Computed example of a mutant assay.
Amino acid sequence: MNDNQSKYDQWIQNLQERKKEARTVRKIVFISMIVLIVIIAGVGIGGYFYVTSALKPVDTDDENPVTVEIPIGSSVDSITSILEENNIVKDKNVFKYYLKFNNESEFQAGTYDLTPAMTLAEITESLKTGKVYHEPIFNVTVPEGLRLEEIAQIIEDKTNYTQKQFMETISDRDFIASLQEKYPELVTDEVMNEDIRHPLEGYLYPATYPFYEEDPSLEKIITEMVDATNNIMTPYIAAISEFEAGDFGPVKEDEENNPMTVHKALTFASLLEEEATESTDRGVIAGIFYNRLEEDMPLQTDPTVLYALNEWKDRVLFEDLEVDDPYNTYQNRGLPPGPIAAPGEASIEAALNPENTDYLYFLAAAEDGAVYYSETLEEHERKAEEYIYNAADDKDEQQ
């Protein structure tokens, strides 16, 4: 009996111990499950935030361009690695999956100036098009036919620089020398002629310029515009070199055999830009100016008188024509010392490809802007009487 009781007690004790062990195991399993869930959740949340962060720009405040070279034949793996190495993307694998998810794979080899502030969408668009795609912080738009003083006002309106600072910078000899070194075929010693009012007049191409940094230097802003002029003029260099002596009128003894230069082409184009109206054929007017030069006639274009006067008004008076200034083409034969405004490509094209006519005169009717051409002074005066003076008298009577 005692043996049986002892066995029973031992069995009860063993059972209690097994229950205790089972409870301990269940606690361990429960705690382990909790820990595992927490770890999985932590990894998931951490991974989510990491991926979310990697999908954003590396540094939204860093607009400094980084030159990145994408070799021909580069795979997506190598492209994403190059971008990560240059700190353009945070994680190459995340960017790779981004490209795969968006089914992007056709990229252009080349050299790109990318910034850490660019989004993955902007980087992708840049690699697809071969051009850097990025939203600019601000744009500067320079319309055709503006003088430097007018461009200076635009810069003042768009940046923290004043008109005075702009005008001082474009006249700085050291800065001009740096442009001559960078663009030797465009910015020549002709811009430093003592008769020229502003050396870079006509050299800032009319266009819209995007800027991707908050405060670019004035030198950078101006250089962008000169660079655009260089890009426009470069294809015309060959045409300029083909001009022969006499194209700008009788060759003087102190002139070279080929008087045509980039500077003169821009000067000529600026006259066309200022004379042009919406209905004006620049090619015909260019031909008229060449005809006058060939006949050794003064060009007699009113915008040069206004530039000489530094006074801008709708009508040039007879007394204005007497102003003693190198830019006055009523008093001086040939081209003025330099451009009088920023010409667009249409005017540059017309200056180098004039239309061949026998016309020597033209006038634009004040009412409808129509342009009338004449071969002789008598014909020109007759048309002026009919379309300008009579029209003015009729208008006065109606009033």
Results as ranks from 00 to 15, higher is better:
Leu293Cys: 02
Asp61Asn: 11
Val140Ala: 13
Glu319Gly: 08
Gly47Met: 05
Ala207Trp: 05
Gln398Ser: 10
Val68Thr: 11
Leu317Ile: 02
Gly44Cys: 04
Asp3Ser: 12
Asp189Asn: 09
Glu275Cys: 04
Thr162His: 12
Ile154Ala: 12
Leu317Lys: 06
Lys164Thr: 11
Asn103Met: 11
Pro71Cys: 04
Phe211Asp: 06
Val305Ser: 13
Gly344Val: 01
Leu335Arg: 08
Gly334Cys: 05
Phe211Cys: 05
Ala391Ile: 11
Tyr212Asp: 08
Ile222Ala: 14
Gly334Ser: 03
Gln108Tyr: 01
Pro199Ile: 02
Ala269Pro: 10
Glu355Val: 01
Leu299Asn: 15
Thr277Trp: 04
Glu214Phe: 02
Thr60Pro: 07
Glu122Arg: 01
Leu186Ser: 10
Lys56Asn: 14
Ser75Leu: 07
Ala370Gly: 06
Ile388Asp: 02
Asp91Glu: 07
Gly73Asn: 10
Thr129Val: 04
Met297Glu: 04
Tyr290Trp: 10
Ile40Gln: 09
Phe362Cys: 03
Ile37Gln: 01
Thr111Gly: 07
Thr129Ala: 00
Ile79Thr: 15
Gly145Arg: 08
Ser217Ala: 01
Thr376Ser: 13
Lys252Asp: 13
Asn14Tyr: 09
Tyr236Lys: 13
Phe95Ser: 00
Val191Lys: 14
Lys383Phe: 02
Thr234Cys: 09
Gly145Trp: 10
Gln5His: 12
Glu149Cys: 07
Thr119Trp: 04
Ile288Leu: 07
Leu120Asp: 01
Lys264Arg: 11
Gly202His: 00
Thr169Asn: 11
Tyr330Leu: 12
Phe243Asp: 03
Lys56His: 13
Asp174Met: 05
Asn160Trp: 10
Trp11Gln: 14
Leu15Ile: 04
Glu355His: 00
Ala177Asn: 09
Leu352Met: 08
Tyr112Gln: 09
Leu179Gln: 14
Tyr112Thr: 03
Glu278Pro: 06
Glu194Pro: 10
Ser32Glu: 01
Ile137Ser: 11
Arg173Ala: 11
Lys56Arg: 14
Ser217Trp: 01
Phe175Ile: 09
Leu309Asp: 07
Gln10Arg: 14
Glu355Lys: 03
Tyr183Trp: 03
Asp325Ser: 12
Tyr307Trp: 09
Glu214Tyr: 02
Gly283Met: 08
Lys56Phe: 14
Tyr48Asn: 06
Asn193Pro: 03
Ala384Arg: 15
Ile237Gly: 03
Tyr48Phe: 14
Thr24Gly: 14
Thr234Ile: 09
Val262Cys: 15
Tyr212Ser: 08
Thr261Gly: 11
Phe289Val: 00
Val371Arg: 03
Phe101Trp: 12
Ser347Lys: 00
Ile70His: 09
Thr80Arg: 13
Ala228Asp: 11
Ile79His: 09
Val142Lys: 01
Pro199Asn: 05
Val262Gly: 14
Ile285Thr: 09
Thr24Phe: 15
